[in-house]
């Protein structure tokens, strides 16, 4: 899921609307301020029964339905463009497809570090891309070996892309199976 900038303000507005709605029902039942007696229900019923209201409701329903569908679908993750231009002198233009690097880095990390289930994803950073590798740690791992593997991987990427167009980030998650740290039984 993607995070959307519109989520926070829209959720605040909906929350306020729901609180007002619930407050109105409570006021109706318990009559805190006597506001319900002053409510002219006839005028509301006239407005809702009017001919124009049906068309207005149809229009509002259409707009709200489109908004709701957009709000649902906009959070589906989008693919990140794979090509990254490399700095080159002269008239040449060199681009690298980062998608081709990720499987190699995943395999390297899985081989060098005490981790498994390595997954990779890419995200844009300015003009370049950040490859985010995520892995489940082996509980028997020690910090030194993890650090060593991470540094060698970072160094190899930095060597391949000295201008920093592509960088790598490593996220270590807990072991996938909590029971896996028991010593295996040998029959």
């Amino acid at each position: 899921m993607r995070r959307l900038a519109v989520d926070r303000p829209a959720v605040i507005m909906l929350g306020l609307l729901l609180v007002v709605l619930g407050g109105a029902v409570l006021e109706w039942r318990f009559d805190f301020f006597g506001g319900w007696d002053r409510l002219e229900t006839d005028r509301i019923a006239d407005a809702v029964g009017a001919d124009w209201f049906a068309w207005a409701a149809a229009g509002a329903a259409l707009v709200l339905a489109v908004l709701a569908v957009w709000w649902l679908l906009a959070r589906i993750p989008r693919g990140v463009e794979g090509r990254v231009p490399l700095a080159a002198d002269g008239a040449d233009r060199i681009e690298v497809d980062v998608r081709s690097i990720v499987p190699k880095l995943r395999a390297d990390f899985e081989r060098a570090a005490p981790v498994d289930h390595v997954t990779g994803r890419r995200r844009r950073t300015g003009s370049g891309q950040l490859i985010e590798l995520r892995a489940n740690v082996d509980p028997r791992a020690d910090g030194a070996s993890l650090l060593r593997a991470a540094e060698s991987l970072t160094d190899s990427v930095a060597e391949a892309f000295p201008d920093g167009e592509v960088a790598v980030r490593l996220l270590i998650d807990p072991p996938r199976r909590p029971g896996a740290r028991k010593t295996p039984r040998v029959h």
């Binding site: 740690v137 650090l147 970072t154 960088a167 790598v168 980030r169 998650d173």
Partner: peptide, 8 residues
């Protein structure tokens, strides 16, 4: 360290 390593 100098690598971009993060642990949960």
């Amino acid at each position: 360290g100098r690598s971009d390593l993060w642990i949960a």
